[in-house]
């Protein structure tokens, strides 16, 4: 039972991940899909931030005095997850922008945001051409 309670922040991260993932995959509304993507990406940042945390330490910015004397690494958190989160944020901003632009275009063309209806309309048009 003990190990089940140790990683609570990670549990919340993966629960959010699964929720966002399911929304992105299964919801039919484009805007909700984008919200799902946002939840999914944020949960990954939470997961990484938790991974970088070491109890009782501060952000990894050393001082000049320490640089000269040698850095005590037990005082600082792990810098790698912070860098990964930064990259992840930039990527997710980019794909969210593209998805939003697609949504604007879809609404202009089809007048709806429901992806099932849109697929249905496209198929009908294709059939009518034959």
């Amino acid at each position: 039972m003990n190990y089940l309670l140790n990683n609570l922040p990670e549990y919340s991260a993966v629960i959010c991940f699964a929720i966002g993932f399911s929304i992105l995959l299964l919801n039919r509304n484009m805007i909700k899909k984008i919200l799902g993507l946002g939840i999914m990406d944020s949960s990954i940042y939470l997961f990484l931030a938790v991974k970088g945390y070491v109890a009782g330490t501060v952000a990894p910015i050393v001082t000049l005095a320490e640089q000269a004397a040698g850095v005590d690494t037990t005082l600082y958190t792990n810098p790698i997850p912070a860098g990964l989160v930064l990259t992840g944020i930039v990527v997710s901003v980019s794909v969210t922008a593209i998805l939003l632009a697609l949504t604007v275009k879809l609404h202009e063309e089809f007048g709806t945001l429901n992806i099932d209806e849109i697929i249905h309309m496209v198929r009908e048009e294709d059939r009518r051409k034959e």
């Binding site: 992105l24 593209i98 998805l99 697609l102 275009k105 879809l106 849109i118 496209v122 294709d126």
Partner: peptide, 16 residues
């Protein structure tokens, strides 16, 4: 219209 709908689905599957 077709390319638009197709690339939306492609992008969503890819992001998943």
């Amino acid at each position: 219209r077709q390319a638009l709908a197709a690339s939306t689905r492609y992008l969503i599957m890819s992001l998943v």
